[in-house]
């Protein structure tokens, strides 16, 4: 017995479970954030742009905005490059690759609070292992102030962030590589192209969709990433490593500025939305 639903209806039905969960969990918070950012409360429908005006005048907001625009792209590109390279390496027929495939995923499995605490400790000028080794080997004469120098503090966090973020990219790339027909490569070998050309003309085009997905998701992901900044520097020294999401966190939990935090979050979402339009177009292009 088979009853035929119209395709369109089936299409919507398939979306239903996902949509329901998203609505249940996120609809109210999203609406509430938007309303709060305009100063609207349940018993008070007064509408104000004050929070947005304040935000545009707030140098700390612009500072964290700027830091986010450094933090996110470098992290995303780092994740992608490292993830793709490791996936390519582990796709080769080398000894122990199964073992390595598990090993390189470990950074992703460790709770990021611990990751932050551990990296902070490793970076410490006196009690940190990195300076200890570099000093002993003789690469440096004075301990490097990884998290306290104006020029490198943010990059030190990015290093830890890429460490944490790349395994996920690697996993997606690995599955992408697995689905490329080995026949294509064999055809390539016969034609006498070198490995680099193979990578550019055969591998990359086949990974295009995966790369778009990864770029879209890691971009959003890195925007939301807060644990490392929070545990490693708390945004310091001064506000050198303050990013938008840690700024929101601070306004909300430390300063009790719920409406202001919401306004920043809304701006942040708009920013992310603009950035991700090409991705959305890319993934839906046939």
């Amino acid at each position: 017995m088979r009853f035929s639903l119209s395709d369109k209806l089936l299409a919507y039905l398939l979306l239903l479970p996902a949509a329901l969960v998203l609505f249940f969990v996120l609809l109210f918070p999203m609406v509430s954030t938007l309303l709060t950012s305009f100063g609207i409360e349940l018993n008070n429908f007064n509408f104000t742009f004050d929070n947005y005006v304040r935000l545009f005048k707030d140098p700390e907001f612009w500072n964290s905005f700027k830091n986010t625009l450094i933090f996110v792209p470098i992290s995303v590109i780092g994740d992608l490059v490292l993830g793709l390279s490791v996936a390519l390496l582990l796709n080769q027929k080398i000894k122990g690759r199964k073992f390595f495939r598990v090993l390189v995923l470990l950074p992703w499995m460790i709770p990021s609070v611990v990751t932050g605490a551990t990296w902070r400790w490793m970076y410490n000028p006196i009690s940190g292992i990195i300076n200890s080794i570099l000093l002993r080997v003789g690469l440096i004469e004075e301990p490097v102030l990884w998290l306290s120098s104006k020029s490198i503090a943010l990059f030190s966090i990015i290093m830890a962030n890429i460490w944490r973020g790349f395994p996920y990219v690697m996993l997606i790339m690995l599955t992408g590589l697995q689905s490329i027909d080995s026949d294509i490569y064999e055809a390539g070998t016969i034609d006498g192209v070198n490995s680099w050309q193979k990578f550019i003309y055969l591998t990359l085009p086949n990974l295009k969709k995966n790369i778009i997905v990864v770029l879209a998701l890691t971009t959003v992901w890195e925007f939301r990433q807060i644990d490392l900044v929070k545990t490693m520097t708390g945004g310091g020294p001064g506000s050198l490593t303050e990013v938008l999401v840690s700024f929101v966190f601070k306004q909300y939990f430390e300063f009790f500025q719920f409406d202001y935090a919401s306004a920043i979050a809304v701006i942040m979402s708009v920013l992310m939305l603009i950035i991700s339009i090409p991705y959305i177009k890319g993934i839906l292009a046939d």
């Binding site: 310091g236 020294p237 001064g238 601070k250 300063f255």
Partner: peptide, 14 residues
């Protein structure tokens, strides 16, 4: 927070 930021900025010579 403002005082902490100022202290850190001074300590790291910003």
């Amino acid at each position: 927070d403002a005082i902490i930021i100022a202290t850190q900025e001074a300590l790291t010579k910003q």
